[in-house]
């Protein structure tokens, strides 16, 4: 009987603990990403959630960027998932910028982009090695050039 009682107490404590230790929310990630972007002015956030896959699934976001603006792209990953997000900026089929440079294997949580042409661009978000992931991408403005 004592064992059963003990088991119940363990379950009760575990449930109470689980209630408080909730997963990292997207809103928290937006705030963290805002800190990574430092003093750049917030423009838009993008919430990225992708399942694991081969080839790696991609979330595509069309976005208007304007001439003479220095933009900042920041990314941050949820600690609850294994996937590390990669952001790539495309103009038609040309990749213009990325947060992960394959040649050096370096990841950048923040990159800046100096735009010289107003128009539609595409942001491609994926997770390295096709792992499942949750992340937030942030578009902000650094300055007018």
């Amino acid at each position: 009987m004592k064992r059963i009682l003990f088991a119940f107490i363990v379950v009760l404590v575990s449930v109470s603990f689980a209630k408080n230790a909730s997963a990292q929310s997207e809103e928290e990630l937006v705030q963290i990403c805002g800190m990574i972007a430092k003093d750049a002015t917030f423009l838009k956030d993008f919430r990225i959630k992708l399942d694991a896959g081969d080839p790696p699934p991609v979330q595509r976001v069309p976005v208007i960027l304007k001439k003479d603006v220095k933009y900042r792209f920041s990314v941050c990953n949820s600690k609850d998932f294994e996937g590390k997000v990669v952001l790539q900026l495309f103009d038609n089929n040309r990749m213009l910028a990325t947060t992960y440079v394959i040649a050096t294997g370096k990841d950048y949580p923040t990159i800046d982009w100096v735009c010289t042409k107003t128009g539609a661009y595409h942001l491609f978000f994926s997770f390295r090695d096709g792992k499942a992931g949750l992340a937030v991408g942030l578009l902000s403005m650094v300055e007018m050039m």
């Binding site: 213009l96 800046d112 982009w113 010289t116 107003t118």
Partner: peptide
């Protein structure tokens, strides 16, 4: 890291 576009409009 800064990526600079060199297109002209």
């Amino acid at each position: 890291i800064v990526f600079k576009q060199t297109d002209k409009q």
